[in-house]
Structure formats: C-alpha cells, structure tokens
C-alpha cells in the first residue's frame, strides 16, 4: 500500500486502512490532515480501524483513538492480525477482530472506489454516508442527509441536505432531476436553497471558488 492512510467503504460500513510499513508519525499526520479536510464527513461516523499486521502499541492506539474522538468519529472495532494489536485493543476497550486485507476484494471493472447505488427514498432523519460517489434513485426528502466523498447523483427530487466531496474533493458535483436542497455543500463551499423551483435537471459544481448551478443540456460535453 502506498498511501499512509486510506478510507474504504463496503456493506459493513467505513473502514480506515492504516499502512503497515509507514512510520507511525507519518500515519498519524496523514490522518490528522484528512480529518481536518473532511470534518463534516467524519462527524458522527462509525468505522473500523484496520491496522493489518502492524504491531500497534498501547500508546499509539490510545493516541489514535483520542484523535478520532476529537473529530467526532466513533471507532467501532480494531481489525488487527498482531498479538500486540489485540492486546492494545483490549486495554483501550475497543473490540478487536482479524483482518484479511491482503485478500483482494473483487471490484467492478477494476475500480477501487466503488460507487454506491441506493434505490429508495431517503426520509427525514436518515443519513447516507459513503466515501465515494453516490447515486440515489428516489427522493431525498427534507430533513434527510447525504454525505459523500465523491459526487452525488439523485434521480429524483433532492430536498434534504447534501455534501459532496466531503473528504475535500472540490471537483465533486451534485446533480438531481429537481435540485432543491435545503443546504448544498461541495468540499468546503456552501450554498443555500434556491428561491425558485428549478425548471429541470441541474448540476451544481464549484467554479471560481463558488458553487454554480447550471441546467442539464443534452449533448453538452462535460468535464
């Protein structure tokens, strides 16, 4: 693994993968900067910490957990293959389980950041959080929240709050058949609900540091 940290998601939820060989300080620094960039994404998120074969020490793990709690994360388990890791997990009071990160999980068409598709209406109070792109076939009702690391595509009415590029990707966009979110964010930029009901499908993206909304035109080439 090249990067010191990586965030993955699957059916069981989010997984924070820490490099097995990189120096611990480097891993922590990378995590800190990632958490600072994606505050909104991480707040209240549950995830599994995966340290692989690294013999993580008591002090290292407690520092890691403290940093995560500081950013509102809720680590639910420690995935570790080492005896030291299991013992550190026990003294920190977090559940441990083995990890098989070297077994490649099948990815569709070689993609590593699998997009998520959800075919239902998101209702008030429901939160959809995913580290990559999200497609929703259905409505996002007022009071519902979508938080995605990548772009958000809604085949329906988007009336709740949406945060695309929540891990810091300012090239992410949001599009919907009816784009009327009560709050729209892309990376660190924010926009309020439009006053008028849109006439048709629209796309919101960042241009010159501001969120711009444009109508969907068939045939137009897009970045």
């Amino acid at each position: 693994m090249s990067a010191p940290i990586a965030i993955k998601g699957n059916k069981e939820g989010l997984r924070l993968m820490l490099a097995e060989d990189a120096p611990w300080d480097e891993v922590m620094a990378a995590l800190r900067s990632q958490l600072e960039r994606g505050t909104e994404f991480f707040h209240g998120a549950e995830l599994t910490i995966d340290v692989g074969d690294r013999a993580v020490q008591d002090g290292e793990l407690s520092g890691l957990l403290a940093l995560m709690h500081e950013h509102g994360l809720q680590p639910s388990a420690l995935a570790t293959n080492s005896r030291e890791g299991r013992s550190a997990g026990r003294s920190a009071g977090i559940a441990t389980r083995p990890t098989n990160r070297h077994v490649p999980t099948p990815q569709p068409s070689g993609e590593t950041d699998a997009a998520l598709m959800v075919a239902r209406t998101l209702r008030s109070g429901q939160v959809l959080r995913h580290h990559a792109h999200v497609t929703i076939v259905g409505d996002v009702n007022p009071g519902a929240e979508v938080i995605a690391g990548g772009s958000v595509l809604v085949w329906g009415r988007l009336r709740g709050t949406v945060h695309a590029g929540a891990l810091g990707d300012s090239s992410a966009f949001v599009c919907a058949l009816e784009l009327m979110p009560s709050l729209l964010r892309i990376a660190d930029t924010m926009a309020r609900q439009p006053d008028q009901r849109p006439a048709g499908p629209e796309t919101a993206r960042i241009k010159d540091g501001q969120i711009e909304v444009e109508q969907w035109e068939a045939g137009k080439t897009r970045a």
Partner: peptide
C-alpha cells in the same frame, strides 16, 4: 409532514 416522513422511515 416532516415528522410523518421521519415516522415512515422508522416504520420501514
């Protein structure tokens, strides 16, 4: 209606 929507989600 907002509260009803929340309830629909919970009932489901």
């Amino acid at each position: 209606v907002r509260d009803a929507d929340r309830i629909v989600g919970l009932v489901e």
